[in-house]
Design a protein around this nucleic acid. Sequence first.
DNA 1: GTCTATACGCAGATAGAC
DNA 2: GTCTATCTGCGTATAGAC
Lengths: 189, 189
Amino acid sequence: MNTKAETIRNKIVTTADDLFYRQGFNHTSFSDIASAVGISRGNFYYHFKTKDDILAAVIEKRKVGIKQFLNEWDETIPSAKQRLNQYVDMVVSYQDNIVKYGCPIGTVCSELNKLKNIHYNNATEMITLFRDWLIEQFVLLGHGKEKAKHYAMHMLTCTQGISVIGQAFTDPAYIRREAQSLKDWLEKI
Amino acid sequence: MNTKAETIRNKIVTTADDLFYRQGFNHTSFSDIASAVGISRGNFYYHFKTKDDILAAVIEKRKVGIKQFLNEWDETIPSAKQRLNQYVDMVVSYQDNIVKYGCPIGTVCSELNKLKNIHYNNATEMITLFRDWLIEQFVLLGHGKEKAKHYAMHMLTCTQGISVIGQAFTDPAYIRREAQSLKDWLEKI
DNA sequence: GTCTATACGCAGATAGAC
DNA sequence: GTCTATCTGCGTATAGAC
């Protein structure tokens, strides 16, 4: 039972996820989501009581997705160094969206912070997932915990910076170049 | 004549500048600005016709400010290398605001992009001012135009990344550490 | 120039019919 | 479960008195 409701619910979350990314959370209205999903605004409230509830579901969905592909990388990519390169490649393969809408994680964190939204800390945990995974990889490469943490933070710094500047200048070539620099840095440490 | 109106106008722009930074553009209402300035909403429209007009004035003010202190650096700091270090130091000295609200330029560009605001390109020109100045410094250091441009873009990447991650983790120590890394990088190239 | 009053639309949210 | 109708508040913007 509840399969149809679950389906609609999922559709709402997926649509909201997309719209929050492209238009921002605050700028996306219930009507936007409802019409994109193809249901009435009234029906909407059967599935979610408030806009913040949808946001929580979207963040949760993204977290699950992040955990999934990080696990998949752990299982399918043999070495830590290759996995770190895969992290950088992810940015490159996402370049078309980045130049248009920035980083889906960085931009939402920045927005929720300014809105003083209750789910801000929840959102930053998306970054924490990446940070902890990156630290793990550097530890596997033989670095001490402190150094691994600093390296991980540097990786986050560069990928977020790439997203902001790549978007501001709408420049995929820049993204590829800067990503390559980061890979070069990875080789040297 | 018009001095009083000019004063009020400036006060509005200064206040809006601050509120747009701390709360975001979309999330800041006319009432917010009016009450912060200490005038009625009605009076407001004597000075600015639309919210976008205030935004344009805020961006213009910021641009003027950026040009001013870049010029000042050019005139008071003897070497290009020292000026590049000053650019990094600026981020460090701004750390308290960054951990709370992010980069005043990066966050507004990101937001205006998602809002499809007409002044988005105008806002990105704030970054262009820094980019062109940075390129100049690297050229003065003896690098070719292409290389200077890539170095400049890398500086932008790091400072923007520092802002996003510094804000997300509310971590001034991280900002100082990563800024030092960037200075180390400057020494090596 | 600055105010109060007010128009207008849209957003979030609810009630109740089907 | 899904709909239409509706409430309420807020935000932008205007009109007009002082």
